[in-house]
Design a protein around this nucleic acid. Structure first.
Lengths: 210, 210
DNA sequence: TTTTCAATAGCGAAATCGGGGGAGTTTACA
DNA sequence: TGTAAACTCCCCCGATTTCGCTATTGAAAA
């Protein structure tokens, strides 16, 4: 039996969901709330396994609510359902800890299946949403294609520089003299077109050279 | 009519897919190949819209093949289908440019629907796969939840430090004395628990403080 | 009203960094 | 076999950074 709580400001939808869950084998509705004002108390009073969360709600929106809920009840799976198909919403919902993200056009059976999915450790998503997630994923990677032609030793030095090591420490870690480290650093600056350690480190991290 | 090419080394499965596609309304099978040795030529001879790609194949594997295919035919949507449920495969498949990733347990109808989904710009995924993607996504973000309590001025200084500015330049940009910059930097180090500019910059970028 | 704290500023000393130069050895490759 | 690149090391020197302190101001909080 999967216990489900509903947060949805539209009364008609809310009632429909409640009815659907109450009349479906293997599901129970522990509560249906129009907003998240007393969410934590509500859930404390009536524990649940899955939350069906609307995004657009008066007061606290569904994404904020998701963040808050995950903070208090990390084990509860939250299924976002919305009419919004926007990167910002998707991105933030994921970061907030949502386990699934479906569009409101889903059929009654689709809802039940999605709830079953999140409960069993999956992340149901409308294929269109999933595509957006993949795109966001790839944008986030954006591996640097530029090759700075750093030698292996220079890369090592740069790596250590990134961790905040001084020339002296780098020297002892690589078993070379500080002067050699200086040489390498100087060459690195030349190749990276920078003039200080901080710039080099910033570039290195941003471009995932190290 | 969605034109589909199949790459699958298992003859039984390959034949099954071909039969399924040939006998389904709105689908046609442009080819069914046991490996990717002549993939590009095959597709050039028999153009398609969607590729159903197995991962485990002799010679070139499905992920490499996906990468190659996307290079030559960026508009072709590639649907990965596999028995493997591993982060590495999922991660690499996404990076290679796959549009969907489904498990082989899917029903015949599930395959057809997934093909329709990728063709119409979606990314069908088994909910379990989707969960892995979300996890990978979040690991990749690793948003810092820790609050370092930097004051507004300290944040400005840190920002400028990240760009490689010296104390002197920071001082003139913020219209304060170098001594003040020194104070701020010192306080930043204390709050960030670091002892050098490079460490502070690395931490700042990685935790997206700036 | 008192306390707290961010922001400002200064001084001194030690350490580190960055640029300039030069030069030897090894390794890779054509 | 010759050459280029990488790796190594050294010296000089000024600029910069880092770490101690102390201290005033003004605004906000208690």
């Amino acid at each position: 039996m999967i216990r489900v709580a509903i947060f949805e400001d539209n009364k008609h939808l809310r009632d429909t969901f409640e009815l659907l869950l109450s009349n479906s084998e293997g599901f129970s509705c522990t509560g249906a709330y129009p907003d998240c004002q007393n969410m934590i108390d509500d859930i404390t009073d009536s524990p649940c396994d899955v939350v069906l969360m609307d995004i657009e709600m008066p007061g606290m929106n569904g994404i904020e609510a998701t963040r808050l809920m995950k903070k208090h009840y990390p084990h509860i799976n939250i299924l976002i359902q919305t009419v919004f198909f926007e990167d910002d919403y998707i991105f933030n919902a994921i970061c907030a800890g949502a386990s699934g993200y479906i569009l409101k056009s889903t059929t009654p059976n689709g809802y039940l299946e999605a709830i079953r999915d999140v409960q069993s450790g999956g992340s149901p998503m409308t294929p269109g949403i999933a595509r957006r997630v993949l795109e966001l994923f790839k944008v986030n990677l954006q591996l640097s294609t530029t090759n700075y032609n750093l030698s292996t030793q220079e890369k090592k030095v740069l790596q250590l520089l990134v961790t905040g090591k001084s020339y002296k420490m780098i020297a002892s870690e690589l078993f070379i003299s500080q002067e050699t480290v200086k040489s390498h650093v100087s060459n690195i600056y030349g190749k990276l077109h920078v003039h200080s350690a901080t710039e080099a480190v910033a570039l290195a991290i941003r471009n995932k050279i190290v």
